[in-house]
Computed example of a mutant assay.
Amino acid sequence: RMISSSNGSQTSALHLCYENINGSCIKVSYSPGLRVILYLALGSGIVLAVLGNLLVMISILHFKQLHSPANFLIASLACADFLVGATVMPFSMVRSVESCWYFGESYCKFHSSFDGSFCYCSIFHLCFISIDRYIAVTDPLVYPTKFTLSISAICILFSWFLAITFSFSLFYTGANDDGLEELVSALTCVGGCQIAMNQDWVLVDFLLFFIPTLVMVILYCKIFLVAKQQARKIESMSNQTESSSESYKARVSKRERKAAKTLGIAMIAFLISWFPYFIDSIIDAFVGFITPAYMYEIFIWFTYYNSAMNPLIYAFFYPWFRRAIKWIVTGKVFRGHSSTVNLFSEKN
């Protein structure tokens, strides 16, 4: 992978990132109209990622009814997506539109480390969420004793620790560009933010994405097979007189299947967002970093927009989340005892 803010070498009128500095990167200039459109499009993604994920976190942490091990995992995932919107996307937006890095060499490494950390954090969270949903759907009555608050806390801590440790140690030891010194020095210029990833580390990078993703795909396939069987069973029982315990089990199964479906959609959105980027990273590392800068920017913004999509998926599929948003936006959360309000209707 090569993260390059400005590797255009031929422009009709030569512009530099820093006009009065020797060794400045070449700037690719867009028309004023196109720049406004790009800032609006990318800026809207930032607003969605920051505000949407903030609403998810406030909803789950404020309303006691939403305090569950599974929801704490979702809140932690929202935190990772929120940090992408707050610490990564604004700087990437300026880099993408201006084709220059104006935030200094030290923040370039920080930015790349944050980018990697929150990306892997999201992947690990989604993997643990798929495990949680698998247990909930296949064994709904035993599930509360299997996936406890302490298990949820361990999953959250593991996700954050592994993601941050891997990304920061990789970029700050310089292991990522071992063997690429000539390429890096040739592309280094003032106003650029180049992070090269050699073939070994790009494969590790891909495996850290691919293995959890494979686990998710296998588990969601199993979930939907079980859900189909449960739906048929409940249908066949509907004509018979069922006991209250069977009726309760049917309601629990239905709720867990609905949650699994919603999170399955979130996972599909994640795959669509991230697969092009990781496939391009692998190809690029083995064929000499030939991806044009504009194509790289398209792939990276696909991944960033994923951070904005999850809250929209929750809002569309979860009535409780829509009710929580209403309480937050209208300021009702500041009323006494608002944390104990019932967000679930009888249908849910």
Rank of each mutant, 00 (worst) to 15 (best):
T138E: 09
L14E: 11
N348P: 07
S307Q: 02
A259S: 14
I37P: 06
H125K: 06
R232M: 11
S243T: 08
Q229C: 11
S152I: 05
A80Y: 00
S99D: 05
I37E: 08
L187G: 15
S29C: 10
S167A: 13
A250W: 00
Q10G: 07
G264I: 02
M216K: 09
P292E: 02
R1V: 14
Q229H: 12
Q10N: 12
I298V: 11
V226K: 08
T165Q: 09
Y318K: 14
S5H: 11
Y294N: 13
L157S: 15
M57F: 06
R255C: 09
F210E: 03
E182R: 14
S152K: 07
I21H: 08
P144M: 04
P69C: 03
D81C: 15
L141A: 06
S44D: 07
A153Q: 15
A293S: 15
I279Y: 06
Y314N: 09
W160R: 10
I37M: 10
Q194T: 13
E246D: 13
E346H: 13
S106V: 12
F171K: 13
M267A: 15
Y220W: 01
I325Q: 04
F224D: 01
I60Q: 01
L42M: 11
L157V: 15
I290V: 14
A13G: 07
S238N: 05
K109L: 14
F278M: 12
A269N: 09
S338I: 01
K64W: 03
S6D: 10
C193T: 00
R133V: 02
I279N: 04
